[in-house]
């Protein structure tokens, strides 16, 4: 990729730098506070032992936290040059129990040269757990400067 990221400098197949994040109960509590999503499946270890919403006796990471970290792959890449996300669609495949370490990444798959400031690229994004299993996949549309 060129030094200065622009719509013209991007090619299909370009791979975005990965993000890696360990998920702890403390981190999940912090995300609950930040998102105001205090669902006990994320926050209440004792409740999770019996409720087992995902068939697991432990809290799991917020799905929207997984999505936020998938977005970080894009914001780290595109936002420092004035890029913006236009749309994202993410499917969450597996729950991420507290204690997991996930890696998040993406690659450019489409360019849409629409002109008039409407140019955008499509990025396929993914999240994998420490065993290499996909926990989330998705597609993002990202506007980039000319």
């Amino acid at each position: 990729m060129a030094d200065r990221l622009t719509f013209d400098s991007v090619d299909c197949g370009d791979v975005l730098p990965e993000v890696k994040q360990e998920n702890t109960q403390e981190l999940t509590w912090k995300h609950a506070v930040a998102s105001l999503d205090y669902n006990p499946v994320h926050t209440h270890p004792e409740w999770c032992k019996t409720a087992q919403v995902f068939g697991l006796p432990v809290p799991v990471m917020h799905g929207n936290q997984t999505m936020s970290l998938m977005c970080k792959v894009i914001t780290d890449w595109a936002y420092p040059v004035g890029g913006r996300m236009k749309r994202i669609e993410i499917k969450l495949i597996k729950p991420v129990p507290v204690g997991s370490t996930c890696t998040y990444g993406g690659a450019v798959t489409e360019k849409h040269p629409l002109g008039k400031g409407e140019d955008f690229v499509t990025v396929e994004v993914w999240a994998k757990n420490q065993d290499g299993e996909q926990v989330g996949i998705g597609t993002a549309q990202v506007r980039l400067p000319k």
């Binding site: 999503d37 669902n39 006990p40 499946v41 409720a51 919403v53 995902f54 917020h62 799905g63 929207n64 999505m67 913006r84 996300m85 236009k86 749309r87 994202i88 669609e89 993410i90 499917k91 969450l92 729950p95 989330g136 998705g138």
Partner: peptide
């Protein structure tokens, strides 16, 4: 906010 709910993925547009 439902206890017992699961997140299968989301769509967002800005």
């Amino acid at each position: 906010r439902t206890p017992g709910s699961r997140n299968p993925g989301q769509v967002m547009e800005w």
